[in-house]
Design a protein around this nucleic acid. Structure first.
Lengths: 190, 190
DNA sequence: AGCATTATAGACTAATTAGTCTATAAATAT
DNA sequence: ATATTTATAGACTAATTAGTCTATAATGCT
């Protein structure tokens, strides 16, 4: 499927930003490797920072949409919770550049260029789901944002472990499942 | 207590890198705000990258030394484990710039400038401690590096929650303790 | 068909930055 | 006291980069 110039620019930018960092990636290089002219890049993105932020928002929206698909399933909350965890780890594994980019962006001054509203939009469906789990006494009676922080930390921990070692697919599946059981031990109501 | 020029440079660099990012912090600015000349900065650090890496290693060594102090206590492993967790969260809270810098560095191309040996040195004592906990069947029978990844993810999750909200000291203590109990639920042998 | 708008191209430029260089001062060694 | 080494200072420069500008092409509208 053919990407628009804008999408080519973003895909190239992602790869280069992850490899070389924000400043280590000149706009001329992004343009050259995306197969567009410098002027074209600056036609689509007013500034380099605009590109950096647009890319971040796009990735977060994609991830949020994936989670919303699971949340919208007609399943038990505990089943969905498990599926969300497994999907998150697998998404991270299958989209290492994107997952890295999220962290890279989060720990950079660029984060302050995104409004609190936009940041909230990235997790609003997911927060509502966790709130429901707490309300129905399936999850521990702790604040939503604490549960989410711990969940995200856990996803990252399992992901980091998986990419630091060389496992075959069945080993990976076992680790993800074990990881889920441990997460559930931590967060289930009791 | 009077810092050497080198320490002044590092302290200023930390504050500025955290505030403005690596590239957003010109060496001339570090020098000016550290109260030294440009030539002095480049006398102590061959390149800007050398400063960035030296700062990271120093912070990690400080953190590792703190943990080693706890590990060297003549306490039960489970007590030490709890103390390590509580210390880590409190250290992060009391050293937000350093804690942020560790993440910022980790998600930047600068990480590849640190050798695997050096990285290992940062956690060697702590890894041995976790291995002992696993061996004595106090911790779940999972790989050391998975336990460590989960532990670090959890510390980060609790920390992130604490700094995103405005709690008084007793609330913070309760959250840290609750956070520990949840971590223990996840990692204890059973 | 003609006009207006959007998209593309690549040369160019001003601004910025890391690192060098030369000179001097301070500290250390003999 | 003198020589050597270490530390400090700040001007300077080459290299790099983001973003602008002018020209042309493609697309869409009337």
């Amino acid at each position: 499927m053919l990407l628009s110039k804008q999408e080519q620019i973003q895909a190239t930018a992602l790869r280069l930003f992850v490899a070389d960092g924000f400043h280590g990636t000149p706009t001329a290089k992004i343009a050259a490797e995306a197969g567009v002219a410098n002027g074209t890049l600056f036609y689509h993105y007013k500034t380099k920072d605009d590109l950096v932020v647009a890319l971040y928002n796009k990735i977060q929206d994609e991830h949020a949409a994936n989670l919303q698909t699971i949340i919208n399933q007609n399943d038990f909350i505990s089943i969905k919770f498990r599926n969300i965890f497994i999907h998150s780890v697998n998404w991270a594994l299958g989209n290492r550049d994107k997952f890295y980019y999220i962290q890279q962006f989060k720990f950079s001054p660029h984060l302050s260029q995104v409004s609190a509203e936009t940041l909230e939009q990235h997790t609003i469906g997911y927060s509502a789901f966790i709130a429901e789990g707490i309300r129905k006494k399936l999850l521990k009676q702790q604040p939503v944002s604490l549960i989410i922080s711990m969940f995200n930390g856990h996803v990252y921990g399992v992901y980091q472990y998986l990419i630091s070692n060389d496992f075959d697919p069945s080993e990976k599946e076992k680790i993800i499942n074990d990881g889920y059981e441990m997460l559930w031990d931590m967060l289930k109501y009791m």
